[in-house]
Write a protein that binds this DNA or RNA. Sequence first.
DNA 1: TTGTAAGCGTTATCAC
DNA 2: GTGATAACGCTTACAA
Lengths: 333, 333
Amino acid sequence: MTLADVAEYAGVSASTASRALNGRGELSPATRAAVLEAADILAFEPSHLARSLRTRRTHTVGFVVPDVSSPFYAAALKGAQGALEQAGYRVLLMDSTQAVDGEVAALRTLLAHRVDGVLVSTVGIDGERFDALVTRRGIPCVFFDSELDGAGDGAVLLDNAAGIELLVEHLARHGHTRIGLLAGSPRETSGRDRRDAFVAAMRSRGLEPEPGLVAGERWSLEEGRAATRAILAAGPRPTALVSSSVELALGALLACRELGVGIPDELALATFDDAYFAELLDPPLTAVAYDPADVGRRAAELLVAAIGDGEVPARDVTVPVDLVVRRSCGCGT
Amino acid sequence: MTLADVAEYAGVSASTASRALNGRGELSPATRAAVLEAADILAFEPSHLARSLRTRRTHTVGFVVPDVSSPFYAAALKGAQGALEQAGYRVLLMDSTQAVDGEVAALRTLLAHRVDGVLVSTVGIDGERFDALVTRRGIPCVFFDSELDGAGDGAVLLDNAAGIELLVEHLARHGHTRIGLLAGSPRETSGRDRRDAFVAAMRSRGLEPEPGLVAGERWSLEEGRAATRAILAAGPRPTALVSSSVELALGALLACRELGVGIPDELALATFDDAYFAELLDPPLTAVAYDPADVGRRAAELLVAAIGDGEVPARDVTVPVDLVVRRSCGCGT
DNA sequence: TTGTAAGCGTTATCAC
DNA sequence: GTGATAACGCTTACAA
């Protein structure tokens, strides 16, 4: 079923059929009705391919994340998907598998598909490659969760500094001074920012973060477990641990269970990222919460604006975070 | 940068450039090299749009799920994405938002994009609409997790019957006879199959499932909580509960905590679906495990085969499941 | 109000 | 071995 078929069936030309279907131009109600009916009868579904080729707009947006199966990215994807669909865009999904090469490959594929814009949570692509692939071709891009410094048309980031400060502050109130950090990827701004924020939060309290008490450089449960073991094994133990993500915190929980270290008695724990099951863990995790779907949604809105207006002044939005106190920090026991 | 630009730069015709880039036909090594170099210098990225319009193959596959942010679907998506990318396909993601209308809309959009095939976890589309949209247009389709009876070119389903049997059997060994069920959506085969399997498993042991001890018809934590409360409120309490999904089980955990019902002492719990954090819950959840990414992967492989061979004999694959015994069932306490 | 024709960027069929 | 040329299905000036 092509537009030509519909036109023929309705006894009009292809252009008239096109106008009728798209509601453009002035045409007699009669012909319009005839075309609409024909389209309906023939179950005509216009080819986005042909349309896009002609109009140079695909109404498709690329979504690039380090790992779709991670709860955070899955939720962000859901939020973005909803907002994009509302705005008439489709989502082409790419998983960079936490590798810069994967990210570059994903971007290439998206370019080949002539997406109208891209939403990316970078794992650390370099400025040059990004510019060559995206900027230079004028593809609107908004980053989320992790950005490439000044690149792109905007970014939606979590308030990493505030979140870490909340965590350290709370632990400090409990009287802890030897606090360790489970860090995330140093190649992502989210990882770096949280680490930097930790150092800043400690220093602002006159505490010097000890090198041996900071470990981890990947966002995974396994890494959290290994890093926790490393921290616990290195010299005098910390009395509290700040984690840069739930995955990492879950690893800590596991490590402590294996080592027989009681939480929160022997080691208090508080983490960035809340999870819907945090309340049900043993012990319930004290965490910094925010709406992950919202970051996807906001990023999508920014992108849609950027695609529409061409050049929106790079606007960054910071998603607020909250502290949810439960028991792993030592409260309520 | 279009093929014409590359051709001009290399001093050949567009057709020759096309042949050089695609490695088709015989051409002199010299011209081939010249074209390749030109393409490289101009950073040429062929338009999938134009190519697809001409070849009638988009190398794009649609992926339709009830809720991308659910851990299971996110993992299945990841598995499918990887396999499809390997095979040279891209993924267009659609979230049906657990509604039949959403599913229909998603399918329409995918058709408009002329996807080469679709992977769908149906929320209960009716045969007629499915046939009109998909079958009649000859779009290869493989279902996963939940299927539409005989439709499509295959399906990858979990071994629901075996999983539920494992759960009931284990609980029965603990001596339970009053066993309740937290059921999922009756509109999805996964939900129906698990419910039916529960009834069968009970009867095969001479136990008649009581109406009041079976509740729930949506896959959500909230539903699990409400259903658990309902079951616990209706007459004599069951001593054990089988849950059709982790979400539902988490809801049960929450409800019991609120009601002060001890697990597993007052109520044993065992669920379909394992979660990577199941071990860390309070109490650790006894569950039926399987590899969610694998179901996506297998479905993708089936689809790729169906797209390739045109008509592969509808082959169904059943993904095996395992029982992971932890403490919520009463073991090891 | 409606039709004609050109063009979007490829690939495929023919000639040469 | 390589180059015209048509065609994929649509939109959009420009005519009529």
